[in-house]
Amino acid sequence: MSFINYSSREINCKIVYYGPGLCGKTTNLQYIYRRMNPDSRGKMISLATETERTLFFDFLPLSLGEIRGFKTRFHLYTVPGQVFYDASRRLILRGVDGVVFCADSQLTRMDSNVESMENLRINLREQGVDGDRLPLVMQYNKRDLPHAASLSDLHALLNYRNVPEFEAVAKSGVGVFETLKAIIKYILVDLKKGGR
C-alpha cells in the first residue's frame, strides 16, 4: 500500500526482495547502498545473525527525486530466505507495493527457487494480495557461477506471469540497478492506474 502525503508532497512505496536463502537479496541492497549518492539514500539497516544471515529484514530507504511535484521515496526490504523464517516473511510483506523475486541460478537451487516462489504466492494470498497482479520483477542472480541453469529453464520454472526478468551478478552489481529500475517503473505505472 503506497502512502501519498499531499501536505508534504511525498509518495512512499515499499519494495520487497524475496527469494530462497543465500540467493543474494541482501547483496542487492548492499550494492545499491554502496553505489547510490549518499544524498539519495538513508542508512541501511540489517537485522542479521552473527553469521550475517538475515534474521528479520534489511532495510534501505531511497529518495529518487520528484515526479509531478511529489518527492518519491522507496523503502527497500529483504526477507529472510531460510525456510523456517516464514512468519517473519509474512510480516515483511505487509503493505508491499512491488516484489523483486531474486532466484539463485545454480542448478542445485532450482527446488529452493520454486519453493520460495510458491511460498511468496501463499503469503501474498494470506494477506489478501493478488499475487498475479502485484508488480513483480524477476532477477536471475549468480549468472557467473558454473552449473547455472539456462535462462529458458529459469523462465519456464519461475516466470509464470511473464514479467520483466533480468540476469544478474549482484556481487559485482551486474543487473542490480536494471532490476531496481524495472520494479520502480512497474510500481509507478500501477500507481497511475489507481492501485490494485
Binding site: M1, F3, I4, S7, L191
Partner: peptide, 9 residues
C-alpha cells in the same frame, strides 16, 4: 482510492 493511503493537508 484502492491500495493507497492518502493523507491530505
Amino acid at each position: 482510492a484502492q491500495g493507497h493511503f492518502i493523507l491530505y493537508d
